[in-house]
Amino acid sequence: MESDFEEPETALAALSADRERLAERYAQQPRWAVPAQALGIAAMVASPAAGVGWMSVWTAVAILGLFLVDRAVRRRTGLRVGRPAGPLGLTVLIVLIVLVVALYVVSLAISLPSAIGSGAGDGVGVAVVTAAAFLATLLGGLLYDRVYLREVRRAG
């Protein structure tokens, strides 16, 4: 067992330096990762427009895409991050999830008439909602990463 006792200040300084290196490693994730995740989420939001039969296939392909992005990030960094590093990150994540779920519900409502054959769907509406989901996830994802790096540098 290591027995060399470190002064608290020394130990805290070492942890601070390590957190900086951890943040640098996390920041090495591919630059296309967040845009690719945003595309995957947008595809899921758009999936109701594909109709009842294809919706699940579309969603499955989007989930597979998200899984592959996660795998690529893991491959590059060697890290798996599954939760925010602090309260601000948690807030960003919750807002993003609520927003995406709300957009999905809107997409579902817009697509429902054509999906059940009781009317024409609103193609423009679905496109707008899908674009909104892409933008929200892209900007939210970039913000989340920035907040994560900041909270990792500051956290224990």
């Binding site: 942890l15 060697g78 991050v81």
Partner: peptide
């Protein structure tokens, strides 16, 4: 409190998990 143990715990704290090699390099 031993330095290496503390540093490993600190690195893992904000993560779900990390590869052995990534910890060693970081």
């Amino acid at each position: 409190h031993a330095p290496t143990r503390l540093r490993v715990c600190a690195m893992l704290r904000p993560l779900d998990e990390a590869d052995f090699g990534a910890i060693a390099r970081t």
